[in-house]
């Protein structure tokens, strides 16, 4: 009966993963194709009549500063994804390296890395982000990604460290070590490939955290002022009281896009979680 429950949930979970990947895939597709069909000039301040409700000319209406919302969305979506992916990649790289080192070297190095990750987890990320962002003169998409990444590497570190510790005790790693394999070889040939499912799973979580932090910073007004991102669109809408003026088409599209991104990420993460755990259980 346990087997039955397992099979059953496997189907359900894979469906979750599939749904998440489909949502993310569609968003990615929009981000890639959107900018090709639209004139970026329409996203400049004063490009057209401001405050127009959606119509045949402007499918998503225009904002308070005369930008065409459809064009704004098409340009902002890839930028937001770029920040999320860049921040995700940076923090993943940091997290994996620290996790591997902590797990492999052990001893004092491990204690220090764990302490740092505990401390950074305790510090309210947004507070530090606000402080850093407030001190930076000119915010750019790249800088934003780097700042956000500095506070979202801990999940990857913890996961990779725990898995490295358990891998290290497995037979084949022992054999490889005894047969005189170099540490480099050991890490990149024996250990890293086995960590791939965990690395992928942490990547999804990390991107999600980074995206959340960057959108929050942007909405507070600490984002790249001269760039179009979903968070900055929300910020300007809030700045010009779009909601109170009833301009739902100004806030609706970015809210929908951001929500879909996060729902897609969550479904992927939940689906992937059970998938990864199953593989590991099966492998042991």
């Amino acid at each position: 009966m346990a087997i039955f429950a397992g099979r059953h949930s496997e189907v359900v979970q894979n469906r979750t993963l599939l749904a998440g990947l489909v949502v993310l895939g569609l968003i990615g597709l929009c981000a890639l194709i959107g900018p090709l069909f639209l004139d970026p000039a329409m996203a400049r301040v004063g490009a057209t009549t401001p405050r127009l409700a959606p119509s045949a000319d402007h499918w998503l209406g225009t904002d308070g500063q005369g930008r065409d919302m459809l064009t704004v969305m098409a340009l902002a979506l890839p930028q937001t994804l770029k920040i999320g992916l860049m921040a995700g990649l940076i923090s993943l790289a940091v997290g994996v390296v620290l996790g591997l080192v902590a797990g492999f070297v052990g001893g004092k190095v491990d204690i220090i890395i764990r302490l740092i990750s505990d401390v950074v987890m305790t510090i309210p990320g947004i507070a530090i982000l606000v402080l850093v962002a407030a001190n930076v003169r000119e915010m750019t998409v790249e800088l934003m990604a780097a700042i956000v990444a500095s506070l979202s590497w801990m999940v990857a570190t913890r996961t990779i460290r725990a898995q490295t510790l358990s891998l290290r005790e497995r037979g084949y790693v022992h054999v490889a070590r005894l047969s005189g394999a170099s540490t480099f070889n050991l890490v990149f040939v024996e250990v890293l490939p086995n960590l791939l499912p965990f690395i992928t799973a942490s990547f999804v979580i990390t991107v999600s955290q980074a995206m959340l932090a960057s959108i929050a910073l942007e909405a507070l007004g600490l984002g790249p002022q001269n760039e179009l991102t979903l968070g900055m669109t929300i910020y300007w809408a809030q700045f010009y009281s779009a909601i109170i003026r009833g301009m739902w088409w100004w806030v609706g599209p970015p809210i929908l896009a951001i929500s879909l991104i996060f729902i897609g990420l969550m479904l992927t993460s939940v689906g992937m979680d059970s998938f990864v755990n199953k593989r590991v259980r099966g492998g042991q």
Binding site: I244, W248, I255, I258, F262, I263
Partner: peptide
Amino acid sequence: LLLSSVPYFLIGMILLYVFAIVLRIFPAG
């Protein structure tokens, strides 16, 4: 569960629009 992945303030913006601006049940701020 799906809602839990959406940032709080986006839900806040939707609530603000629906209940304070359109329906005028609650104050806007």
